[in-house]
């Protein structure tokens, strides 16, 4: 879907991005993770030609992006910024309609699509006539997302989309974001410095430092097969929580004791992370939950103690 080859951006002697290559598959969420100045935002902005690379190539859907008019390219790629970048002199409706207007959609089509998105993004129609300044930070970010999604682009670029929000709003929006249908079909590249966010939202993560990719892989790979000390060090602070959030029941399924349950009613899916399972278990009276493996239709009952000891076992086996 997206293929980046030996991409570099040099500012004089500063190598902001230094010969990186990666690929993103269709429908995948790739997170560019790193501290400020690691080159993640520069990389992102080269994908829609807000920044022109010094060298290297980028292919989207097999087509070299320099072969397209930059404006045309950008109209086909959604873009969400930390500061939303909403036009303060446009109403919410007008903000959402910017790209459709550039694409010369008719009014009816724009209105229908706007209403559809407003519902999906938990906004109300009464918001449409307001100006961005009249909305809360979370609502503004939703409008920003609606604006990026309105023309249904296959690729979405997000530059620290939740960075400006307070922790509570941020958590809620991140949850909604994960559950949003619109986004599940999309190829998303998102920049963040928040490790939690990266692990929660990313199918794969590119950990960057000084313009290079230190390690690219799934959250579990980064945690349990770190490429070097930098990776270990980067994740050290929040390691336990990250492991809880990265490891799913699938990963530890075989290690779980095989306690058959009476019914598979209310059973949770095996794609749940250990963290989510723990949250469900602690909210239940009996301190246990049933989980079903969709592949062999096996159902197991998991208690808090069992889950913890199994997880511990998994940690040890992976760490070897």
């Amino acid at each position: 879907m997206i293929k980046v080859e030996h991409l570099s951006k040099h500012y004089g002697k500063l190598h902001a991005v230094d010969g990186i290559s990666f690929e993103v598959n269709e429908g995948e969420n790739l997170i560019l993770l790193g501290t400020s100045g690691c080159g993640k935002t520069t990389t992102l902005k080269m994908l829609n030609r807000l920044i022109e690379p010094t060298s290297g190539k980028i292919f989207i859907n097999g087509r070299n992006i320099v072969e397209q008019q930059p404006e045309e390219l950008r109209r086909g790629i959604g873009y969400v910024l930390q500061d939303t970048g909403l036009f303060p002199h446009y109403t919410v409706a007008e903000n959402i309609a910017i790209v459709p207007n550039l694409l010369k959609w008719d009014k009816k089509r724009i209105a229908d699509r706007t209403f559809e998105l407003v519902e999906k993004l938990n906004l109300s129609r009464s918001h449409l006539k307001l100006y961005p300044a009249q909305l809360s930070g979370g609502q503004q970010q939703r409008v920003g997302l609606a604006r990026a999604l309105v023309a249904d682009p296959s690729v979405l670029l997000m530059d620290e989309p939740f960075g400006a929000l307070d922790p509570v709003t941020r958590f809620n929006i991140r949850q909604e974001f994960k559950d949003l249908d619109e986004l599940k079909r999309k190829t998303i590249i998102m920049v963040t410095h928040d490790v939690q966010e990266a692990f929660e939202l990313g199918d794969r993560i590119c950990l960057m430092d000084k313009g290079r990719i230190v390690q690219a892989g799934t959250p579990v790979e980064l945690l349990f097969k770190p490429a070097n000390d930098f990776v270990t060090g980067f994740l050290k602070e929040q390691r336990l929580l990250l492991e809880f959030k990265a490891v799913t029941l699938n990963d530890i399924w075989d290690l779980l004791p095989n306690i058959k349950t009476r019914s598979s009613k209310n059973a949770i899916n095996c794609n749940c992370t250990v963290w989510e399972t723990l949250k469900i278990i602690t909210s239940q009276k009996e301190n246990a939950v049933a989980a079903t493996n969709p592949i062999n239709k096996e159902t197991k009952t998991i208690t808090f103690t069992q889950l913890m000891s199994t997880f511990n076992q998994y940690q040890n086996s992976e760490a070897v």
Partner: peptide
């Protein structure tokens, strides 16, 4: 003019005059 707004405008595919 807030640079984020200009960047957003550019990223959505607006041209120089737009």
């Amino acid at each position: 003019v807030n640079p984020a707004i200009k960047e957003a405008a550019k990223a959505m595919g607006m041209g120089y005059w737009q």
